[in-house]
């Protein structure tokens, strides 16, 4: 049962979010490139830095943070509503009377699914974001394919990828646990369920950003 539920959650989080993550990160990468092209104009900074900047911005910050914020909204509200709805429809009471450990049955599959799927989504987001940067750079006409690729291959520190995955795992935990908590302890009717869902999103985003800062300070300090 736990296995089936975990697979279902992985499908919901992964397949259900891939499109929005693709679109958002494509444009984030493109905007990063366009902004940097604007900053570079008239400067004596080597042109190939464009690829380097887009890559590191995507890997260290933008892909993982934007993806997590999107997921805090989409998946966080979904989880809070699902569990909160089960609380209100007495599904959780029914499971408890059957002897099911409801916190484990309802929370664990979602947590495990998020811890597996969100880092995968972040990987996709990073690739898409860099691709967006590449497309915007080439279409600007001022930079060549070779310059972008040279930048992409310059000054690469594997630790940036490690940092991205550390953030992805921590953010996945934060998004899921806050949403599950808000849904599990919801009381009252549909208004309270809506409020719990909103709290799951708001608290999720705020805690993700705080954690982002702390991780950045700890890992780069």
């Amino acid at each position: 049962m736990y296995y089936k539920e975990t697979i279902r959650q992985m499908y919901d989080i992964g397949v259900g979010s891939i499109m929005i993550i693709f679109v958002v990160n494509l444009f984030i990468g493109a905007v990063t490139a366009v902004q940097f092209i604007y900053q570079l104009s008239g400067q004596i900074i080597p042109k190939y830095y464009i690829g380097y900047i887009v890559r590191d911005m995507a890997l260290i910050e933008l892909a993982v943070t934007f993806t997590s914020i999107i997921l805090a909204g989409k998946v966080g509200s979904n989880i809070a509503s699902e569990i909160g709805g089960m609380r209100q429809k007495e599904h959780i009471d029914a499971m408890e009377i059957m002897g099911v450990n409801t916190s484990s049955y309802l929370v664990m599959p979602k947590l495990i699914a998020a811890l597996i799927v969100i880092p995968i989504l972040v990987s996709v987001a990073a690739i898409v974001s860099i691709s967006g940067g590449y497309i915007a750079t080439i279409y600007s006409g001022s930079y060549s394919h070779e310059e972008f690729i040279q930048g992409l291959r310059s000054f690469f520190k594997p630790f940036t990828v490690v940092m991205m995955y550390i953030k992805a795992v921590v953010f996945a935990y934060i998004i899921t646990s806050i949403a599950c908590y808000q849904g599990y302890f919801v009381k009252g009717g549909s208004i309270e369920l809506g409020q719990a869902s909103t709290r799951a999103v708001v608290f999720g985003i705020i805690v993700v950003l705080i954690a982002d800062y702390i991780i950045a300070v700890v890992l780069t300090g």
């Binding site: 007495e90 009377i97 002897g99």
Partner: peptide, 15 residues
């Protein structure tokens, strides 16, 4: 948990 294995319940909203 053992005791609850011996309990069945029908809810007002069916659940």
């Amino acid at each position: 948990q053992d005791l609850r294995m011996q309990v069945g319940m029908l809810f007002q909203g069916n659940a």
